[in-house]
Amino acid sequence: MSAFANNRTAVLNVIMIFGFCVFALLIICPLIALILNVLQDIASFKVLFSYHVTKPLVLSIFTALASTAISTIAGISLAYLMEYKKIFFRETFDTLINLPFVLPPSVAGYLLLITFGKYGLVGYPLSFLGIELMFSTVAIVIAQTFVALPFIVKSTRTAMSAIPSNLINAAKTMGASELLIFKQIILPLSKKGILAGIVMAYARAIGEFGATMMVCGLLTTLPIAIYTSALSGEREVANILSLVLISISFLILAVFKKVMKND
């Protein structure tokens, strides 16, 4: 019996060691590699203030802010709609909203092209008004919103569904209108979920590569700049850009953890 138990413990230990090796190889090693690369040429830090770095950095920060803002408003309203309103085909609706989670980014980019491009479903009528959306900053924001939105919807919905329905009923019997219940009960009580959604959405938006790549035209966001500089051999730029993006990611993770901890 004890030999059998020992065997099982041994198997478990092997599996744990395997897990740790994967973690070390895929997460620790690349980070070390990046630090070594950066340290090899300390002078390359001056690139940080060059046009190659600041331009994509500013573009990424601001487009991600814009897409997160749009996703927040749209996401909260969609979550509210799905949680509190009688809607037909709720399940289908839910699946469609979560589609960007599983859609390959290149497919997402292609879909946006055939929708908002010059001859696209929405782009064509707009072109008559002289509005062109693709290959512009707006296109980047659209692509980022596309991938960031489901994070906010999902996280907000989870928070809203945890609010006991009697709290809303109590507010109703005391004379509260729907808007007031939303403002005073639902919003404050799902605050944590919404904030977590915002943080995740911003992280997803600022790191968005595939779909953005297909719609950004000549503009370069941070991830795209890393790709092009790595391909063209500008290692010092790729190093610094990666370091910046990783720092932002760490910061976002720290904020996320703080949000989830605060009650």
């Binding site: 006991p164 009697n166 709290l167 009923n169 109590a170 507010a171 109703k172 019997t173 005391m174 004379g175 509260a176 209108s177 009960i185 404050p188 009580l189």
Partner: peptide, 20 residues
């Protein structure tokens, strides 16, 4: 008449007090 206009007081089994 919707609940918010009925002027009814309701004490719920789980109290339904606003935690925030």
């Amino acid at each position: 008449v919707p609940p918010e206009k009925r002027n009814v007081g309701f004490v719920f089994q789980d109290y339904a007090l606003f935690p925030h």
